[in-house]
């Protein structure tokens, strides 16, 4: 037997990424990712019809769309993709195939994590790009607009990295992790981010929002009771937290005994 070839993590990444592209769930998420694009196009149509002003459309993007992406779409996609890394294997009883090959469990989790995060990133980035083009097509020649897009996409990837790692750890730890994940996204994250003092720093969304530009206007969702953290600190926090969550996910997955059948 020749022991050459790619690393098992990369083999699993390639295989689960390509099967993920064909999965029914991905098609549902494509539709979900296109909802903001449709909303943005609708705003543009209303602007053309004179119902709303150009300033309102720009405000719509910076207020509503950013909120939609960073507080809803990204955490929800990360939740479903992250928890499914292990939970899907348990629900479909397919984990046995990946744990009876000469591959360390950490390679299995990391390969599937990479596939999940790339799928989620493509969904978010494509929707975000279309949304941005619809919102900013009058200033596409302006380099600042593209810098802004780069910032949004970079922040999206960091947010996906951190949220997906957290939810993959949750999925590795417990079978019905979606409910707890939903509570985290819509309970903890949504409420605690507005708490005064340092409490809001115990949310991921605080560090994500700290990277986004604060648009003019007092009604922005980016107005904090505490000032946003410095960008470099936010980037490092998201990277370290993501890596820590991923380490915890691997730690649990390597040690936990998964029982696929109720038959003793």
């Amino acid at each position: 037997m020749t022991m050459k070839g790619n690393h098992p993590t990369l083999i699993l990444f390639g295989s689960f990424f390509s099967s993920g592209l064909r999965a029914k769930r991905t098609r549902v998420f494509i539709l979900l990712a296109m909802v903001p694009v449709l909303l943005m196009l609708a705003a543009r149509v209303m602007e053309s019809a004179g119902t709303v002003s150009a300033g309102d459309v720009a405000g719509f993007f910076s207020h509503f769309m950013l909120s939609l992406y960073f507080q809803l779409l990204i955490p929800v996609l990360a939740l479903f993709f992250g928890t499914s890394i292990v939970n899907e294997e348990l629900d479909n009883k397919t984990l046995v195939y990946l744990t009876t090959v000469p591959v360390p469990r950490r390679a299995v989790l990391l390969g599937k994590y990479l596939a999940a995060i790339l799928l989620a990133s493509l969904l978010v980035a494509s929707g975000f790009l279309l949304c941005f083009l619809a919102a900013s097509f009058t200033r596409l020649g302006d380099p600042a607009a593209w810098e802004e897009l780069g910032l949004f996409l970079g922040t999206s990837l960091l947010a996906l990295f951190c949220y997906s790692a957290l939810f993959s750890a949750l999925g590795a730890f417990m079978k019905k992790s979606i409910l707890l994940g939903l509570f985290f996204v819509f309970g903890w994250e949504s409420v605690v981010q507005y708490f005064p003092g340092v409490t809001q720093k115990f949310t991921i969304v605080h560090w994500v929002k700290s990277l986004l530009p604060v648009p003019p206007g007092q009604n922005s969702f980016l107005i904090f009771q505490l000032q946003p953290s410095p960008p470099l600190q936010s980037v490092l926090t998201l990277l370290v937290a993501g890596a820590l969550f991923l380490y915890i996910a691997v730690f649990i997955f390597e040690r936990k005994e998964y029982i696929l059948s109720d038959n003793a």
Binding site: M1, T2, G5, N6, P8, I11, L12, S15, V101, P102
Partner: peptide, 14 residues
């Protein structure tokens, strides 16, 4: 094919 690759076989061997 996936399982064969995970067993360490190269593309052609797998």
């Amino acid at each position: 094919l996936l399982l064969a690759r995970l067993h360490g076989f190269t593309g052609a061997e797998a």
